[in-house]
Amino acid sequence: MTTPQSYFEHMYARSSDPWSFATRWYDARKHALTVASLPARRYQSAFEPGCSTGLLTARLAERCDHVLAVDAVPAAVASAATHLAAASNVSLRAGRMPADWPGDTFDLIVLSELGYYFDDGDLTTLLDRAVASLEPGGDLVAVHWRRPVDEHARSGDDVHDRIAALPGLARQARHEEADFLLEVYTRTPPEARSVAQREGLA
Rank of each mutant, 00 (worst) to 15 (best):
T3C: 07
S6M: 03
M11K: 12
A13Q: 09
P18Q: 02
W19Y: 06
W19D: 10
A22L: 06
W25A: 02
W25G: 01
Y26H: 13
D27N: 12
D27C: 10
H31W: 07
A32M: 13
V35M: 10
V35A: 11
S37Q: 09
S37N: 02
L38V: 00
R41L: 08
S45Q: 09
A46C: 10
P49L: 00
G50Y: 00
C51I: 10
L56D: 05
T57L: 02
R59S: 01
E62R: 15
R63E: 04
D65W: 14
D65P: 08
A69L: 02
P74S: 12
A78C: 08
T82M: 05
T82K: 12
L84M: 11
A86D: 15
N89L: 14
V90N: 12
S91F: 10
R93F: 04
M97C: 15
G103I: 08
D104F: 08
F106K: 07
D107K: 07
I109P: 15
L111H: 15
L114Y: 00
L114A: 11
Y116S: 06
Y116P: 01
D122G: 01
T124M: 05
D128M: 03
P136L: 01
G137M: 01
A142T: 15
A142S: 14
A142G: 14
V143C: 14
H144N: 15
R147S: 05
V149Q: 10
E151W: 00
D157S: 11
H160R: 13
I163C: 05
A165P: 12
L169P: 13
A170N: 12
A170F: 03
A173L: 15
R174P: 03
E177M: 01
A178S: 11
D179P: 00
F180E: 07
L182M: 02
E183Y: 06
T188I: 14
E191L: 08
V195D: 02
Q197I: 08
Q197V: 06
E199M: 10
E199T: 07
A202I: 11
